[in-house]
Design a protein around this nucleic acid. Structure first.
Lengths: 145, 145
DNA sequence: GGAAAAATGTAATGTTATTACATATTGGCC
DNA sequence: GGCCAATATGTAATAACATTACATTTTTCC
């Protein structure tokens, strides 16, 4: 049985990087959360087993994981979420629920190419396709109704 | 000649709100900047003529202007930009240059409806259509090349 | 002109993120 | 094994961003 952490490890190995113990812990917390976590929430969690953990500990590790595509930063929530689909490079679209702050990730939807073309028509070149779309997830629509 | 500030004033009047002196100053600074400004940059600018200005002064005013659609918050830059098109309600797409941090606003592009429909197909309802797309603006592409 | 609502002032604090430098760990090479 | 360089982590301080709570002033409207 291949766990998400195992996947992450081989994903990194393919790129010449290592899943160190610290990185493993951080990613593990994010995976367990099943949703976005704040940097300082992660810090508190880390400090349970690692008394010396400090902000740079967390931010450096997050920078690495985000750079490798294992974690996404959600700007509008100032939070971080484990990427559920890191078996391949992908273009993520984040659906951010404004009520519960849950995040669903849509992989490479069909309109991405249209979007890219129309943006390019203005002379602007998209680098990064992490779009955040805000709204209400299904559960919160039902709860609100 | 109808200045942007005059437009803003009548836009607010139509909605039963006022462009007070403080709001006018903040919006004026944002318009002059021709690009995104940080909250504390605005604060420093305000303090020139208003010694008592403090963080709440700025954040409250920005909240108001954002709420009225005269200003957009750019989450990825933690900055605020005057909206160039507040003559009508619109769906903004922000093209954020990763090099110069300039922001161009695209009004209601044609793929918006497709996007909305495809997102809706997942059970998620979009509330707010302020998308941020990161990349390189034309000028920075040329400078880099 | 007086009460209620809206806007602004003021002080303190909370939250998020970075800088700069020290130490430890790993991996290659002889 | 012993050394060097590169990578990773530890540590202290501080910078940058944002909110809370409450006081005061200004405006609105009867």
């Amino acid at each position: 049985m291949m766990t998400p952490l195992d996947h992450a490890e081989s994903w990194l190995a393919d790129r010449g990087e290592k899943l160190t113990e610290l990185r493993r812990e951080v990613l593990s917390h994010l995976l367990d959360a099943h949703g976005p976590m704040k940097a300082y929430e992660l810090l508190t969690a880390l400090q349970k087993g690692r008394p010396g953990a400090s902000p740079p500990t967390v931010y450096r590790t997050l920078d690495f994981l985000v750079g490798m595509g294992l974690v996404h930063r959600i700007d509008s929530l100032q939070s971080f979420v484990a990427c559920p689909i890191f078996h391949a490079p992908h273009q993520g679209v984040m659906l951010v629920c404004e009520r519960c702050h849950g995040v669903e990730e849509l992989e490479s939807p069909s309109w991405m190419e249209t979007l890219r073309n129309e943006v390019a028509a203005t002379g602007f070149v998209m680098n990064q396709h992490e779009l955040e779309i805000k709204g209400l997830c299904r559960a919160c629509q039902e709860a609100t109704a």
